[in-house]
Design a protein around this nucleic acid. Structure first.
Lengths: 223, 223
DNA sequence: AAAATAGTGTCTGTGAGACAGTATCGC
DNA sequence: GCGATACTGTCTCACAGACACTATTTT
């Protein structure tokens, strides 16, 4: 290991991977947190995270997906790199960097886990620099929501026009015109109808739709 | 150091910082590369990069700015995190991650340095995964160019409408309508005239402009 | 029938492309 | 004068907001 060579000059920074799990429920965006057991910040709330398992992780995204699987039991969620946060002070163990991913949980939150959900705008005091990281993740979601199909990944696989529009409204923090939204969605060719009908109890049922592609894609127009 | 605890379980990944220096010259985007002296990939071309100096770098961006300063002598260039690239194979020394920044050099390339400049679209074979990283950086530049003032940072501090439009055209790979571009720039309030005039030798001199703010900002409309 | 939500049709203002027309320089 | 580039004015089309209107369900 020639790694020893430079480690004698500069100690290797601590490298971790953290995940911002985001979920939409009851008209609010929630972030998943865990109470830490080990030091540092033992007992504090923090984002789920961990070290790279160099024997099994193909890259830091694989680490993030493994952490998501371990903490929530979920597979196949939308997961994207947010950025790397670093400083000499953010971790009392020394100079550290954390590669952060954010993930969107579709529909129902997983149960039977230690994960707690708190509103993204009032997550309370989190360990490390995790408050700043949560803020950066919501900024990214709101920014990217205006020109991509990202908000759709906060919904279950099938959804109505109204649910999709309401999701965009909550992510973007604005009200959207109903007919203009339908027009844009129709023309942008992102969603397709499913034969089943939504059995909304109170009024006329709505057509259910699903994404044509399970991949994130940018829109030629703004929402 | 409780760092020892987890290092006994998983060896710490190698963490580096790399910089994609981009420059616009002769109607082409160029990327700055260095010939490597040390192993691995000794003799190959690679992006300028290095390890975090934990005694002096406040974060990985500071590392990137220090690398830019050391390799080009430039201060105050636009520099932004592109992302972190990682894998067990990208560095023969072991599992590694590199935090990549891209920087835009304004106007004249620095001389008297070991830096070589190659076209971003044909950079030749680069060490590590640096070809993929250069491609990701140009993708980011092209994407962000369409909704921000980013391309202006490829120009000298003062420039004409025509030069700014040409820069956007080269970054975006499309032709832009002259009068529409002027209208948008006027309304978006990003640039302001400077009293001096450009002394273009061949024809009518053009008004020089400068950015109102030296910060990157997103546009409310697309270019 | 009334209430409620789903979905459609049409008017209108605004912004962007197209392009003609004017201005100012070197020669 | 002419060529060249800088800049301005105007026409038109397309898109998005507004909103009235119709449709289909539950109660």
């Amino acid at each position: 290991m020639s790694q020893v060579f430079w480690m004698t000059i500069y100690p290797a920074p601590i490298l971790t991977v953290d995940v911002v799990l985001l979920e939409l429920r009851e008209e609010t965006l929630w972030v998943g947190i865990l109470q830490r057991g080990d030091a540092p910040y033992s007992g504090s709330n923090a984002l789920p995270g961990g070290f790279v398992h160099t024997d099994e992780d193909a890259n830091t995204e694989a680490t993030a997906l493994r952490i998501i699987r371990e903490k929530t039991g979920l597979n196949g969620v939308f997961c994207e790199q947010l950025g790397t946060f670093s400083s000499p002070d953010r971790d009392p163990r020394g100079w550290s960097a954390t590669v952060v991913y954010y993930a969107l949980v579709r529909g129902e939150r997983p149960t039977e886990t230690a994960l707690k959900w708190v509103p993204v705008d009032e997550p309370g005091d989190l360990a490390f620099d995790h408050n700043a990281i949560v803020a950066a993740a919501t900024d990214r979601l709101r920014a990217k929501g205006s020109w991509s199909n990202l908000p759709a990944f906060l919904l279950p696989p099938t959804f109505t026009y109204s649910e999709l529009r309401r999701t965009y409204e909550l992510v973007l923090g604005t009200n959207l015109n109903d007919s203009a939204f339908r027009r844009k969605m129709d023309e942008m060719n992102l969603i397709e109808p499913v034969v089943g009908q939504k059995s909304k109890a109170t009024a006329r049922p709505a057509q259910l739709f699903k994404l044509k592609s399970e991949a994130i894609c940018s829109l030629n127009r703004r929402i």
